[in-house]
Computed example of a mutant assay.
Amino acid sequence: MMQTTTTVTPAGRERAPRLDNKTRREQIAQAALDLVSTRGYRALTVKRLAAKVGLTPSGLYRHFPDKAAILDALLELVADALQGNVQRAAAMKGSALDKLAALLRLQVETIGTKGFGAPRLFFSDDLSMRHPEKQTRLREIMEEFTGGIAAIMAQGQSEGLIREDIPSANLGIMFMGLFQPGALMNYLHRGAFEMQRQAEAAWRVFAVGLTAKGVEAPSLYS
Rank of each mutant, 00 (worst) to 15 (best):
G12N: 12
G12W: 12
R13L: 14
E14S: 13
A16D: 06
A16P: 06
P17D: 09
P17F: 07
P17T: 08
P17W: 07
L19M: 11
L19K: 10
D20P: 15
D20T: 08
K22W: 03
K22E: 15
K22P: 00
K22H: 10
T23Q: 10
R25L: 02
E26D: 13
I28R: 03
I28V: 13
I28Q: 01
Q30V: 00
Q30T: 01
Q30M: 03
A32C: 02
L33Y: 02
L33S: 02
L33T: 00
V36I: 15
S37L: 03
T38Y: 02
T38K: 13
R39C: 07
G40Q: 11
G40K: 08
R42S: 15
A43P: 07
L44Y: 04
V46S: 08
V46H: 12
V46D: 11
K47E: 14
K47H: 11
K47Q: 11
R48S: 12
R48L: 07
A50L: 09
A50G: 07
A51D: 14
V53G: 02
V53T: 06
G54C: 07
T56A: 13
T56Q: 12
P57Y: 12
P57T: 08
P57L: 10
P57M: 11
G59H: 06
G59D: 09
Y61F: 14
Y61E: 04
P65L: 10
P65Q: 09
